[in-house]
Amino acid sequence: MILEFERPVKELEARIADLHRLAGPSAELQGEISRLEDALESAKRRIYSNLSPYQRVQVARHPDRPNFRAYRDALADDFYELSGDRAHGEDPAVRGGFARLSRSGHNVMLIGHDKGADVKSRVKGNFGMAHPEGYRKVRRLYELAGRFGMPIVTLVDTPGAFAGRQAEERGQAWAISEDLMALARSPVPVICMVIGEGGSGGALAMCAGDYVGMLENSYLSVIAPEACASIIFRDPGRAAEAAAAMKITARDLKEQKIVDEVLPEPLGGAHNEPDAAIEAVGETLGLVLSELSDVDPQTLMKTRYERYRRIGAHAAAGQDPALS
């Protein structure tokens, strides 16, 4: 899939490929080729370093963007998957289990939304939109990790929790609030990486932790820009404006001190060079894990309390009550 704003880049790439084919082993067209390569490089730089918030949303949704599976396969040398919420069923929209990170050797509870790799698995995983049983499995794994003193690592990539009849019948809201409560009292480090879409409560249920990193082109939002536009501007066509107004990009959230770090992506976005993006996430994970592994549970929970307790955009009339 080619995004609209990527078209000039893709066209230049196609022309360069054509010339290479025509030129064959001869050096005749070399001048023209390198001229186009320069143009390509500067077009990439121009386009990708000035992406609008909504263009980043499109990059975050790109079907070729590395997703949970790619990270899992590249970063863990063993992934021991666990399934089911022990009450209703197994939800493949979100996956989790014990993982040994190959780079740093840490054992972690690795949990992520699974958008799938092809049409079949995308449909099976409901495009990363979990049902309540998915969020209840997540809570189960949070608690398991706590019992074994194993850090929790989440990879967030969801358009949102699924909005459907059955999801409501089984208490979608209840399941998400249980996850938030479980994260708040977890005695182990909770490390969250937003690798793609961070849609609303369904994302927050997996990214209220001690460290939250965001890939440069990922986003985190209270509502999809399209839905915001249709509610506030009464025009879903104004999604780009809504995306800008809600300040949902990684850089915006770093500025708002809601996330800790923006992880740079390869030029053009993670889908152009998946290995580099995955490597960057793996490296950061190793560093953060080493940093947080020795922090005692009381300090972790207290710091997490203060971290979320202070976030807000309000004019204070009094002082915050003392934290115990």
Binding site: S177, L180, S200, G201, L204, A208, L220, S221, V222, A245, M246, K247, I248, D252, L253, Q256, I258, Y308, I311, G312, A313
Partner: peptide, 8 residues
């Protein structure tokens, strides 16, 4: 924006 999400 995300401030409202974070109230959760």
């Amino acid at each position: 924006g995300v401030y409202s999400l974070m109230q959760m």
